[in-house]
Design a protein around this nucleic acid. Structure first.
Length: 581
DNA sequence: GCCGTTTTCGGCCCGACTGTTTTCAGTCG
């Protein structure tokens, strides 16, 4: 229900923009964003408190609340259908064409009857687009090129694909003569789950060299723009490609630019408002104060810290810049001290070549030690996951012996790490486990996880998971919602009931750091912390390189405001074991 | 259409780049 309304209101914003209606576009866009971030269904909100309760949602006023009610009651929104009838175009699709916005869509529909990307491609190929007023040969070519990219990819990259690319750009540009500093900004700096494009900022005495190097980098498929201080390209990736922007900004403005280009948009708009209230003007060049003669003079800009400070705010970590209450906390000096990126001492979900992992127990342990970890738990799959060669009781006992042997063997080497025995026990359809309790009792760490029957009803699924949580041997629930980012929907769960059961029994919930999973996601982490549920962050590594993934999980935890004490595997091994159920 | 220690009316973020312009509109972030 919420997602349907997000789509409708976003589309209405575009439809109003096409017709040059003032202010409504942003109002609808804002409402759509707010609804998208709700953890409760608007239907439930409406059931509890009617229109008044809907109006409590920030960005939703009387008008939009009434439309939500109309949709709940009738399944339609008359206004929307009226607009749609007047402009029957596939906006969602057309706005995804780089360089095509609402005004162009309007002209294209009015003059050429373009409704879809396919129509647009046909019109451009036959030279009709170039003949329109304020269009030309170049815009037509640009549209065709963008359509090619659209057909290839059609969307965002997971952060696990985008971040390595951005880091490559950063490393390359850092080597350009004259460059003093390069930082990744945008949604990547906020560690969002999916990334629409890569933003990079640089300080350099010779901006043109930065621009030239960037647009000629390997992997660049097309140059959208190549200016003096800003360039934009399309990078080729296995998944189809992503846009990347690089800007060179003045050193004295670097903090302001970093702040500005990190976003998110709502956070920045709110911050600008605070600036105006305090008599400042904030843009990507700095925080400006108005002089007696009416002229603006730059007051701050070198660092983000000084800007937030001048605005009477605590420094806000990028992951939390969402305009979801962090500004109010910063104003009252009440932001949590977030867990650090080097704050973890252990990894509790690691697969090896005993099942579907690629590397041996010893290789995984040594790599983890090199990454600075003090302990890992080996948690191979169990028998009902036959495709992975899942372990039965006998195999688990054999593996325990092997772990003991390796622990002993590496004691005298440079690798200071303790290997814990464990398993990723499969939760069966009825919530029972596929390994006997006596064997589970012998393992150091028991993780339980759902790998099948994803389509059960909310009630059945919740009961199933709670039954597993109540097993006295289960220490951790691995990837609790089983979602795969952009690929598989989460299972339906009454998360509040699940988290309460976890709190009651002392069972830890995992934040699976694998960039495909990121499960729990931020809003559930926040809820878990509020309920006093124990949390752990694990990589779910199936090969040695993946042990680096912890940073993705830490980012999710930081977005949810997690402190060091909220995460069990920040503890040294002895205390960690004691803290488990 | 939303919002409010400028609160029920009058505001609503703003600059770089491109292409088609002859001074600027559209898009993007």
């Amino acid at each position: 229900m919420n997602q349907e309304l997000v789509t409708i209101f976003t589309e209405m914003a575009e439809l109003f923009a096409m017709q040059d209606v003032p202010f409504k576009p942003r109002a609808f866009e804002k409402a759509a964003l707010a609804i998208g971030e709700l953890s409760e269904s608007v239907k439930d909100i409406h059931k509890k408190g009617g229109i008044a309760a809907l109006e409590e949602i920030s960005g939703v006023g009387r008008g939009i609340a009434e439309r939500i009610e109309e949709y709940i009651k009738t399944g339609h929104i008359k206004d929307y259908e009226h607009l749609k009838k007047k402009m029957p175009v596939n906006i969602e699709e057309l706005t995804r064409i780089e360089g095509v916005g609402p005004k162009m869509i309007h002209t294209l529909y009015e003059k050429l009857g373009v409704r879809t990307v396919k129509d647009l491609e046909k019109a451009a190929k036959t030279g009709k687009v170039a003949k329109l007023p304020r269009f030309g040969k170049k815009s037509e070519e640009k549209i065709l090129k963008s359509i090619e990219f659209f057909k290839q990819s059609g969307g965002r990259l997971g952060i696990g694909e985008a971040l390595p690319l951005a880091r490559q750009i950063k490393e390359r540009l850092e080597k350009v003569p004259g460059v003093e500093r390069v930082e990744i900004a945008g949604s990547l700096r906020r560690w969002q789950e999916t990334i629409g494009d890569i933003d990079v900022l640089a300080v350099s005495s010779e901006p043109e060299k930065v621009m030239d190097t960037f647009v000629k980098m390997s992997g660049v498929q097309h140059v959208h723009a190549h200016g003096d201080t800003k360039s934009s390209v399309r990078l080729h990736t296995p998944a189809g490609g992503i846009d990347a922007d690089v800007r060179v900004v003045p050193k004295k403005s670097f903090g302001a630019a970093l702040q500005y280009f990190t976003g998110n948009k709502a956070h920045n708009v709110a911050l600008r408002k605070i600036a105006i209230e305090k008599g400042y003007k904030l843009n990507e060049y700095g925080l400006f104060k108005q002089m007696a003669n009416g002229k603006w003079r730059m007051a701050y800009g070198k660092t983000e810290e000084e800007i937030y400070k001048a605005l009477g705010l605590q420094y806000i970590e990028p992951e939390m810049r969402l305009d979801e209450g962090e500004l109010a906390l910063a104003e009252k000096n009440k932001l949590p001290k977030l867990i650090d990126y080097d704050g973890l001492k252990g990894d509790l979900q690691v697969q090896t070549n005993w099942t579907d992992g690629a590397d041996s127990i010893e290789t995984m342990a040594k790599t983890a030690a090199d990454l600075g970890l003090e302990y890992i738990a080996i948690t191979d799959h169990t028998r009902s996951l036959a495709m992975t060669g899942g372990a039965d009781e006998k195999k688990l006992l054999r593996q325990m012996k092997e772990i003991e042997r390796i622990n002993h063997k590496i004691q005298d080497t440079r690798y200071k790490i303790q290997i814990l025995s464990g398993a990723e026990v499969n939760i069966k359809k009825d919530g029972s486990l596929d390994i006997d309790d006596e064997v589970l009792a012998k393992l150091d760490v028991v993780g339980a996880a759902i790998h099948s029957h994803f389509k059960l009803s909310k009630k059945e699924q919740t009961e199933r998971l709670i039954r597993a949580i109540e097993n006295p041997h289960v220490d951790i629930i691995f990837h609790p919602t089983t979602r795969v980012v952009t690929r598989r929907e989460p299972i339906e769960l009454d998360m509040e009931a699940v988290l309460k059961a976890a709190a009651r029994t002392g069972t830890a919930m995992e934040i699976d750091a694998h960039p495909w999973r990121l499960d729990l996601k931020d809003e559930y982490i926040r809820a878990a912390i509020a309920l006093g549920v124990k949390l752990v962050i694990d990589t779910d590594a199936h090969r040695a390189e993946e042990l680096r993934y912890l940073e993705y999980g830490i980012a999710q935890a930081r977005r949810a405001g997690a402190k060091k004490k909220d995460i069990l595997n920040t503890l040294p091994v002895g205390e960690f074991i004691k803290a488990l159920k």
